[in-house]
């Protein structure tokens, strides 16, 4: 089950905690994996830990040219067309709305949502021709529930969900699925910086009583990327220890 042998994947934000876990899981399932991100040395380290074939492609998602060329650069680097794209890269610029500057808004929307549009558009063309594809957007629980101090981030993540549902409807007849995975609170550099008191309060809201691991998100991605998930599209799979049941 969930065998990705012969498939090729691209994971953005692959140097991060969740991204590297996703890359590793796809690789373990048999896929060749192109890793994209800004930190080349970290990406090389992640690549070194993959059990299968990998390639590193640097990309700055705030630079539209860099995003537009990412798919072709990834396909050149890994040597075959992409079957699976996991759009995992994201940034935060947390502020209360009253203190949020236009740049805080624009940067987050551009990197998190704008690059998802650009990346998807450039990869779907080939997928349509091949009559197969898996688009997986890593969104967030807060894209559905909201979170004070994250109006920009929540808007971008909710936007990914709406975008994915539309795309799913457009390309379903061509063998392409588009789904989101919505992590709850996962141990990562993004949650490590939370104050201890806030972490304690968080745990009280999670029925599972613990933060999730990158591998929890990765498993959801492997499922959605698999042939077994061919009939699942336009969905958001929540992986959050029961923190929100939607």
């Amino acid at each position: 089950m969930f065998d990705l042998t012969g498939r090729t994947a691209l994971v953005t934000g692959a140097s991060g905690g969740i991204g590297s876990a996703i890359a590793k899981a796809l690789s373990e399932a048999g896929a060749k994996v192109a890793l994209s991100g800004t930190r080349e040395s970290v990406l090389n380290e992640v690549k070194g830990n993959l059990p299968g074939q990998g390639a590193v492609v640097t990309a700055n998602l705030s630079d539209t040219d860099s995003v537009d060329s990412l798919v072709s650069r990834a396909e050149d680097a890994i040597g075959s067309p992409l079957d699976i794209v996991v759009a995992n890269a994201g940034i935060t610029r947390d502020k209360l709305l009253m203190q949020m500057k236009p740049d805080d808004w624009d940067d987050v929307l551009n990197v998190n949502l704008g690059s998802y549009y650009r990346l998807t558009k450039s990869v779907v063309r080939g997928m349509m021709k091949r009559r197969h594809g898996r688009i997986i957007g890593i969104t967030s629980i807060v894209g559905v529930t909201g979170n004070p101090g994250q109006a920009n981030y929540c808007a971008s993540k909710a936007g990914m969900i709406g975008f994915t549902k539309s795309l799913a409807q457009e390309v379903a007849s061509r063998g392409i699925t588009a789904n989101c995975v919505a992590p709850g609170f996962i141990e990562s550099p993004m949650t490590d910086v939370l104050p201890e008191a806030q972490k304690e309060a968080l745990l009280g809201q999670i029925p599972a009583g613990k933060l999730g691991q990158g591998s929890d998100i990765a498993s959801a991605c492997v499922y959605l990327a698999s042939d077994e998930a061919a009939y699942v599209t336009g969905q958001t799979l929540h992986v959050n220890g029961g923190m929100a049941m939607i």
């Binding site: 063309r125 349509m128 021709k129 457009e170 390309v171 007849s173 061509r174």
Partner: peptide
């Protein structure tokens, strides 16, 4: 409309 996009491609 999607057929048209594919035809153009």
């Amino acid at each position: 409309s999607l057929d048209l996009v594919e035809l153009v491609m």
